[in-house]
Amino acid sequence: MRVSSSPGAWLAAWWVRSYTRTATESEGADRRAEVLADLHDELLDARNRRLRSGLASRSILGRALRGVPADLVWRLQLERQPGRLEWHLAHPGSLLAALFVLLVPASMVADAARGPAPGLGPVGGTLSALAVLLSAGIVVVAGVALVRRILARSVRLRWGATSVRRAALSAMAVLWAGALLWRFADGPLESLAALSWAGFGLALVVYVLAVTAGLARTVFIDIRKVSS
């Protein structure tokens, strides 16, 4: 019984891998293995009861979606363990991605409140402040991580699709945050915002290409497995 045979199970497996990938090693591996075994058991149970595959897929997807808040709380609780800040500064990709996921909607709603949707009023002000805080956080985390790597002489370039995708996502986060911060500046610094947006566009193109390459590789491997 393969998890990839059901779209719901595939998405649930993707989600558990996403939120456990950078968790502490033993807890992350245990949660992944436990949920993957659960997905397998539910698919097998549906097959034994001769349920339609769509029903099992929907049930699994519903269980995964309803559990997202608990998953996020569990993941945040793991971050209280000692040494996590140090780990994130050594591997800043996931923290930058998490801050970026919060920053994008916050800054977009804040912008809408200033422009086409002024009725958002105080919400817009709060979100603007949040967006600036998140942007500053992204720039500080990326800056500290980069300086530490340079000082430790551990700057290495990797060219695999996954490494390029993660690097492009980190660059997108930093450039979006930079554009948001620089636009409040006057004079020559103001043009940095435009440069940041241009850089963001470039990073986005690289990200899409890396995702496409990763998907193509997965499909190619699946086809080879089936044909052999």
């Binding site: 649930a12 558990v16 949660r31 436990e34 949920v35 075994a37 659960d38 058991d41 539910e42 149970d45 049930s59 519903g62 269980r63 995964a64 979606l65 309803r66 559990g67 997202v68 808040p69 608990a70 998953d71 709380v73 569990w74």
Partner: peptide, 25 residues
Amino acid sequence: GFALAQELADQQGATRLVSHGTLYK
């Protein structure tokens, strides 16, 4: 885990199984 989810649903007469996040947390 999955056996627990099934029995919890049976106990309550629920049609939906408890979510992965809630159960494993």
